[in-house]
Computed example of a mutant assay.
Amino acid sequence: MKLSLQQFNHLAPADATSLLLTCCTSTAWATELVSHRPFTDIDNLLTHSDNAWQQAQSNEANLLEAFDGHPQIGNVDSLKEKYRDTQDSAAHEQSGANDAEDEVIAALAQGNQDYLDKFGFIFIVFATGKSAQQMLDLLLARIPNNHATELANAAAEQNKITRLRLQKLLGAA
């Protein structure tokens, strides 16, 4: 569903909140953002979104609520489906790459489970435009972090995801 910013500004508060929760499942973020309507333009909305997210981060429960809105990448079959187009777009790929891709996908599934076991929340990353190998590299680079560092990393990635979803929702992306 795409709306104009003007349409969004005129929604009932409950409807606007419900719509925002499709972009980020933090109730504190959505409620705070709705309270700042009307927005003059998409940049004004994004600035208020960033500020609302900054406030929401003061409570770990708000972050976990937002992270829970993402599916866990842990099923090998769903990972193969997600990254199937990546191998098609790589013209230089050789015939043996399919086996390597399966290995990457299996490693990504295992890494996601290891991450969840260590931190208690799923691996959050702005995935747009990233291959399975890039995702695995990011996951492996972040898994040695301590809880506080990784919570901050995941929160920053969540904000990038939310900003893109808002832009798509309002036809600005």
Rank of each mutant, 00 (worst) to 15 (best):
N59I: 04
L46R: 06
E103H: 12
K82Q: 12
A66C: 01
K80P: 02
Q6V: 02
V34C: 10
L19A: 00
N59A: 12
D137E: 15
G69K: 02
L108D: 06
F8H: 08
E101M: 12
Q94Y: 02
E101G: 00
G120N: 08
F67N: 15
R84T: 06
E103K: 14
Q113F: 01
A155H: 07
D50P: 00
L136H: 03
E81R: 14
T31L: 14
S95E: 09
A61P: 01
D15K: 08
A141Q: 11
H48R: 12
E93C: 10
N51A: 15
H36M: 08
I105S: 13
T22W: 00
A91G: 01
D117I: 08
E157C: 10
I161E: 12
L3P: 11
F121K: 04
N145Y: 09
T128A: 14
D137G: 12
K2E: 13
N75D: 12
A30L: 09
T86M: 06
K130V: 14
L5I: 09
L3K: 07
D15T: 02
T27D: 03
Q87W: 15
L19Y: 05
I161Q: 06
V76C: 08
P13G: 12
A12D: 09
F39E: 06
Q72E: 13
G74L: 07
A172E: 08
T40Q: 13
A173P: 00
T31M: 13
Q72A: 14
S131H: 03
D41A: 09
N146R: 00
A156I: 08
N145W: 01
G96I: 11
Q134K: 15
D85G: 10
F8D: 10
G69T: 01
N146P: 00
F39T: 01
E81K: 13
L140Q: 15
I105T: 11
P38G: 08
R84A: 14
H92A: 07
L79D: 05
R142T: 06
N51C: 13
D102T: 00
A132S: 14
D68L: 08
L45H: 08
Q54I: 11
S4M: 07
Q133L: 06
L166Q: 05
A61W: 02
A156M: 10
N75R: 10
T25C: 10
N62V: 05
V76D: 09
A56H: 09
L108K: 04
